[in-house]
Design a protein around this nucleic acid. Structure first.
Lengths: 343, 343
DNA sequence: CGGTTACATGAAAGCGGTTGCAGGAGGCGC
DNA sequence: GCGCCTCCTGCAACCGCTTTCATGTAACCG
């Protein structure tokens, strides 16, 4: 395999200097049209491609955007990633992925990534920074944008969903259908990554119930994230003689667990039980799950766009975008059947 | 924001040469223990982090693996990506993603990516190279590994599933259950990306049917990929008075469409109709879809591993791994009900 | 005590681009 | 014919790190 041609080879062959080749190939207006054509031809002929490493070193930019994701442990990640990719596709930036599935890994990335030497911009998805890193991130000289992380990001550029509003929306939907005993199934509020979405959605849930004069703590089941866990949690809740007629789950994954539990118990959805999820992952569509859509693709796209803007010029104060959730009605919710509930 | 410290600053401050700093920080055995400690201390103090660009240029490596993946959005892709990440996580390589959703994009990447200047290794997922690129890819000086692309990759390192065997497996499963009228729903065989999975699975399907003395062309519906398309396709097939008692779909996505069509038509699964999919995406589990598992995570992991091996030393002939599919029985298949079928 | 040897370190030459600055070649006005 | 301006182009420095090669020093040997 022949050694790749360098700019020097092109220069020699074309009978000009490296400087001219560089300028010609980068479309500098300073260079004569004829020369430009000649250089381009030679470059083509030699199959020349500039070394990105050299270019980057020389330019002092990495032309790279890094994305830290808490990966497909959550099915939303892929969809957000696509949004990010869509925004980055036509830019000069390469997309480098760092997948986080452990706290150590997260800490490692939070330490090592926000460096000019490493990347031109950092996009952090669904991972609030741990306390000890906040200051450093706020003062980082590389632009950082957080997506879907509210905790500890007040002074940082971010794209947020409104989980409280979403929770309220879901619960209100059930209230509107006449339900009065409405359960909540969600993640334990404290977790190693400090995810807050479940807690916030619960907050919205409580707000809606209280506004309707109902007890917000009557039917609450919290546990580890996951479909099977949710199934077990809700099985208990649904075995109660005073069981809820509707359940709001903090995520679609968990809603699917609730659905499974209902089936196990012979409860018919939506006649015996209404179920609402959160996220609007793809599976919702074919299961017919009513849910709260949080515009995953869009949040990724906007985050990436915000990052590009920040790379060009940092904004003060840090920009913030809130993407509003929206309820998507499908087949797992229905009006409460009469003659069964209390009241 | 203070300018980042360079190796020069560290050298000055520590009273040694750059060379020594470099060696100390890279753990060269040539450097005295005491010096090493001093250098490390100073580096820490100055918050020094080496410039990756400079390092890469100097080393002549990019320390980067590029992954070209089609339709990040499809659930298979995400799962494979996770496998790839798992294999790369503990290596020195950064993972750069290139998402392909159009033929132009694919061609662009196939042209520009296989360059030493760009990346140390290339992983191409589910995208067979177009004819015009084959030669160049085969002679590329950067190692390339294909995952899940059989066409045009005979002389290239690759990880393959066995779609023919998988198709046969699925169909045989249905035959074993007593079905005789078995339909096939899949992608049109010609498509812009030259995906062959549907065609190959159909091949296996035919093979199984022929072996059982059945007509392999009796119930075949082909169309664009997608759940809704599959629903429409199969709706027609299932409206036939002579309709099949079982359907094998070329992908889970399409199987879900078949399920939807069955529901529309009031056919009960699995009593009236058995359905088998292909891929074993996550959704299968909660829908209870019987399917052919193709070990997505594993194929990603092995592909990445193969690539790392190739980067270290190219193997001749190019390595090839075949991952064997396996049937996963869930709740959408059952023995054919008597008194209805022919024979 | 001179000669090897082993060990540590530094000077400097890259890696392959970009770019500030200087300078040459024409073209123009007078 | 001369000075000046405009266009192009080349020289050389620089980006920040790695690594070869040479050198200096201390330890070891007979």
């Amino acid at each position: 395999m022949a050694k790749r041609a360098t700019i020097r080879d092109v220069a020699l062959r074309a009978g000009v200097s490296q400087a001219t080749v560089s300028r010609a190939l980068n479309g500098s207006p300073l260079v004569n049209e004829a020369t430009k054509r000649r250089v381009t031809a030679v470059a083509e002929e030699l199959d020349f491609a500039p070394s990105l490493s050299a270019r980057r070193l020389s330019l002092g930019k990495t032309q790279t955007v890094s994305v830290v994701v808490s990966f497909l442990t959550r099915p939303q990640a892929a969809e957000r990633l696509r949004g990010i990719d869509a925004a980055l596709a036509d830019s000069e930036f390469d997309l480098v992925i760092y997948n986080v599935e452990t706290v150590e890994k997260r800490n490692h990335y939070f330490q090592s990534l926000p460096l000019r030497q490493r990347t031109d911009g950092l996009l952090i998805v669904s991972l609030p920074p741990p306390d000890q890193d906040v200051r450093r991130l706020e003062q980082s000289d590389v632009p950082i944008v957080f997506i879907d992380a509210r905790e500890n990001t007040t002074n940082l550029p971010r794209v947020l969903g409104d989980d409280v509003a979403g929770g309220e929306l879901a619960t209100q939907h059930l209230l509107d259908l006449g339900h009065r005993r409405i359960g909540f199934v969600g993640d334990a509020f404290s977790n190693p990554f400090a995810f807050t979405s479940s807690r916030d959605r619960f907050e919205g849930y409580k707000r809606a119930l209280v506004a309707s004069g109902l007890d917000p703590e009557a039917h609450v089941a919290l546990g580890a994230h996951g479909r099977y866990e949710a199934r077990d949690l809700s099985a208990r809740m649904l075995s109660d003689p005073d069981r809820p007629t509707a359940v709001f789950a903090a995520s679609d994954t968990q809603a699917l667990g609730v659905l499974a539990a209902a089936q196990d118990l012979g409860l018919h959805v939506p006649d015996d039980l209404s179920v609402v999820g959160y996220d609007d992952i793809e599976a919702c569509d074919f299961v017919g799950l009513t849910t709260v859509r949080q515009h995953l693709f869009e949040s990724g796209r906007q985050g990436a766009q915000m990052l590009i803007t920040e790379i060009n010029e940092r904004a003060v104060p840090p920009p913030e975008v809130v993407i509003h959730p929206e309820i998507v009605r499908r087949r797992t919710t229905a009006p409460r059947k009469e003659g069964r509930g209390q009241k």
